[in-house]
């Protein structure tokens, strides 16, 4: 009996090892038609039957200086997101987009509840108190994703069992045409930091991140 348990244990740990994503990595750079890097773009691998995120998966979307930080977040379906509101003022976050619509009062000095996102789709965040606040959460049926940095770079890791034909998609609020199918997993496999695979997309306009200008008041005026 003990021997059988040991082999079961061994088999289980092998399976667990296959489930970790240290298997394959690929580095990509998202660029626009002019060859300039596109920051804050979500790159993710489409996976069939990926299931929900494990129950304790959590992410954080903070509120600092009347902005959502990070402005763009990507999570797997089933993830819990905390909104800690480390700003000096209260906020009232909401999204009206079905099926992930919600509203969340985040008042200073009161408890800050979290929200589970159980459906795939785009969640556009607003604040009912500060009309200029805008953020995005992309909920995807995949555990393999990343957001590009200010150089347009992102590194994604996935299990070796993912087929080379699995689609690679890019999304950003600046894209001209939504969730584009851009490449296949096999294309990006093995690409490294020195020579990332470049993924060209059509942007509406080159992204200039909104820098808070402390000179002027912008709320409600």
């Amino acid at each position: 009996m003990i021997v059988l348990n040991k082999s079961k244990a061994l088999l289980l740990s092998l399976l667990v090892a296959c489930q970790t994503y240290a298997g394959v990595t690929g580095k990509v750079q998202v660029i626009d038609a002019a060859g300039l890097p596109v920051p804050d773009a979500v790159v993710y691998l489409e996976v069939i039957d990926s299931g929900l995120a494990s129950p304790d998966t959590a992410a954080i979307v903070d509120q600092i200086d009347k902005q959502f930080v990070p402005r763009i977040t990507v999570v797997q379906t089933g993830t819990r997101i905390d909104f800690p509101n480390r700003d000096s003022v209260s906020h009232h976050v909401y999204s009206f987009a079905n099926p992930n619509s919600f509203e969340l009062p985040l008042y200073k000095g009161e408890a800050k509840p979290s929200v589970h996102f159980d459906h795939a789709g785009l969640v556009t965040l607003g604040c009912n108190i500060h009309d200029s606040m805008l953020g995005y959460i992309l909920v995807v049926d995949s555990p393999h994703f990343a957001v590009t940095d200010h150089d347009g770079m992102a590194e994604i890791a996935w299990a070796a069992k993912l087929t080379v034909d699995a689609p690679v998609r890019v999304w950003s609020p600046d894209l001209a045409n939504g969730n584009v199918l851009i490449a296949k997993v096999g294309d990006i496999e093995g690409a490294t930091g020195d020579s990332p695979l470049q993924l060209a997309v059509n942007v509406l306009q080159t992204g200039t991140a909104s820098i808070a200008d402390s000179s002027l008041s912008w709320d409600e005026y």
Partner: peptide
Amino acid sequence: WQLTRKVL
């Protein structure tokens, strides 16, 4: 019309 935090 506002271009957020840039022009109003």
